[in-house]
């Protein structure tokens, strides 16, 4: 059997020291298979983005182990290890450098990784995400939010990674644009077969995008299950049910059964 693409073993991340210590992530153990689409849901501050950042190697100190493609992957990684994994962030306004043209934004990863055929790869990546050649020499402020997010996706896939991390890729976008971007991500996943880990607080988006879902609260994974179960509201933990009920709209009766582990 091939080893899981991403393996988290008893991952813990804490910020601060002593009495001001805050445990953002506690005892997270996860196996994500190659080609799988995995979702992490939970409220703000539940630690889901921290898990993603730890997988990406952006967190300096943690406990437990992270293995990617069978190899231990800490914060110090080689160029090849970096190339294996790319990320699309939430805010398309903050994730593109305001003084770089789209051309420069897309060439940078290729220059950093010392790849050849930059012209061809940039043109190809633009076409892949549905941008036109005339967008190439514009600055980010000359593009719409949806177009910027497409640029961010193009920047992530231009290195041909095997893992794509998605940190709420659509929550900063208009509802009409969200669907376009989600469909683009689904199409790219089908074509390129990469492993994806998606973080979101939107259950509908996660159910649509992912095969398997984990529910997180206060730094722990409460429950893991298939997204089909999630879509039916079939999760058993009270917090998961609460999250599911909350997503279906405001209902005063829900307050009576509010679950809180504090």
């Amino acid at each position: 059997m091939t080893p899981p693409m991403i393996q988290l073993d008893d991952l813990g991340v804490s910020f601060g020291k002593g009495t001001r210590r805050f445990d953002a992530v506690r005892n997270v153990t996860l196996d994500i298979a190659e080609g799988e689409a995995f979702g992490l849901v939970g409220e703000s501050g539940s630690g889901k983005s921290t898990v993603l950042n730890a997988i990406a190697g952006l967190i300096g100190s943690y406990s437990g182990a992270i293995r990617i493609d069978g190899a231990p992957a800490g914060p110090q990684r080689t160029g090849a290890q970096r190339r294996l994994l790319q990320m699309v962030l939430q805010d398309p306004y903050g994730s593109l450098h305001p003084r770089h043209t789209i051309d420069k934004i897309l060439s940078e990863p290729l220059l950093i990784q010392r790849l050849d055929g930059i012209e061809r790869r940039v043109e190809h990546a633009l076409a892949d995400v549905g941008l036109k050649p005339e967008h190439r020499f514009r600055f980010p402020h000359q593009l719409s939010g949806g177009q910027r997010q497409r640029v961010a996706i193009a920047r992530a896939i231009i290195l041909e990674p095997r893992i794509l991390l998605l940190d709420e890729p659509t929550s900063a976008l208009d509802v009409s644009v969200q669907a376009e971007v989600l469909n683009l991500l689904r199409r790219l996943r089908r074509e390129r077969r990469f492993t994806t880990v998606m973080v979101s607080h939107n259950l509908a988006v996660v159910a649509y995008m992912c095969d398997r879902v984990a529910v997180m609260s206060r730094g722990r994974i409460l429950e893991t299950g298939s997204s089909a179960e999630l879509a039916k509201g079939g999760f058993s933990h009270p917090y998961s049910r609460q999250l599911w009920n909350a997503s279906s709209g405001y209902n005063r009766d829900l307050l009576k059964e509010l679950w809180d582990d504090a």
């Binding site: 990684r77 970096r82 994730s95 940078e108 990784q113």
Partner: peptide
Amino acid sequence: DYVKVAKLQG
């Protein structure tokens, strides 16, 4: 975020 992404790219 763009600095974070640059770090990710290596």
